[in-house]
């Protein structure tokens, strides 16, 4: 250990996977961060962002001693490139539920994860619901954070308007999604991440606000077969606690945890507060599907 440096236990790797999809298929080189041992906990960042939103969780020994935490960058985000074999620059990017769910399953297959818990926030929370509906046997449980059956209103051209500074529009346009109680240092890191993803943000929100619509499918999700533990912060104006509670109430076996004084990016804007609620969710999952698999990689 150098005298003036401190290494993190978190490591990063790339894995390349092939995906068949009529709209977005191709060869994808995917970057992920990981730390810990035990049951895999696969973490999806929010739209237009990247895996540093999970920085607090990735370095939390209280979680990583019993979970292999994996936080990846969705293709076109962070260090995960757009597809290697498509002329993607000639296409309008619009993320779909079909591609998003196929990608998550393909990544879990490539990493040979057994009974992983999938957790995502915002559009990651919505895709957690989609996974529970489409692939209930592939996941031990899902934790949809800041999610609902339907979340209209955020697929906006402002995110990419050529006459405005897209980086600042995306970052300051999502500022109000965080709670005023969250620490400035953490909120500004989240803001900073949002300056980096404006090209993907609008297309991500095509999934979030348009393609994702489970209003007439919630009864088909079996939350006893694949436990669904939903969590939403009181300062989330896109998917309010009331919206999440109403969604959870229609899913067989689902549970809802309301998080006080936190917003739409809870793991990133105020990890210590989020952690308390996450531990509740993991405890409930452990009670329902069995003890974590110690040491499994």
């Amino acid at each position: 250990m150098p005298a003036n440096g401190r290494f993190s236990p978190v490591t990063g790797r790339y894995v390349t996977i092939d995906l068949e999809d009529p709209d977005l298929g191709g060869e994808y080189k995917v970057f992920f961060l990981e730390n810990g041992e035990g049951r895999p906990l696969v973490c999806q960042h929010t739209a237009g962002c990247h895996n540093h939103q999970w920085r607090g969780l990735l370095e939390d020994p209280d979680i990583t001693r019993s979970h292999r935490v994996i936080a990846y960058d969705l293709p076109r985000h962070g260090k995960s490139d757009p597809p290697n074999d498509r002329e993607w620059w000639k296409e309008e990017y619009r993320l779909t539920a079909d591609f998003f769910t196929k990608f998550v399953v393909a990544l879990c297959d490539a990493l040979e994860l057994e009974d992983p818990i999938f957790m995502g926030s915002s559009f990651g929370g919505n895709v957690a619901l989609q996974l529970a509906w489409r692939y209930p046997d592939r996941f031990g449980a899902v934790i949809p954070v800041e999610a609902a059956d339907y979340s209209p209103g955020f697929f906006l051209d402002w995110w990419q308007h050529p006459h405005a500074n897209a980086a600042q529009v995306c970052a300051s346009g999502t500022w109000d999604l965080m709670a005023p109680q969250s620490p400035d240092q953490e909120r500004w890191k989240t803001w900073f991440y949002y300056t980096q993803g404006s090209e993907a943000f609008r297309g991500d929100l095509s999934f979030y606000s348009v393609d994702h619509d489970l209003r007439d499918k919630l009864e088909e999700i079996d939350g006893e077969r694949c436990p669904v533990i939903m969590m939403t912060g009181t300062y989330d104006y896109l998917t309010t606690p009331e919206m999440t509670a109403a969604t959870a109430a229609r899913i067989k076996g689902a549970e809802f945890i309301e998080m006080q004084d936190i917003g739409h990016f809870p793991m990133s804007e105020n990890y210590p507060v989020f952690k308390g609620y996450l531990e509740q969710a993991l405890q409930r999952i452990e009670e329902r599907i069995g003890a974590t698999v110690s040491g499994q990689r």
């Binding site: 405005a164 500074n165 346009g173 500022w175 109000d176 999604l177 104006y237 309010t240």
Partner: peptide, 25 residues
């Protein structure tokens, strides 16, 4: 807790040349 929150969930409206708002957001 902000103009977006109040616009989505309360009764605040944004009107006029919103491009100027976005340019100075």
């Amino acid at each position: 807790h902000g103009i977006w929150a109040a616009a989505f969930r309360k009764n605040l409206s944004m009107e006029g040349d919103l491009l100027v708002l976005m340019q100075n957001l």
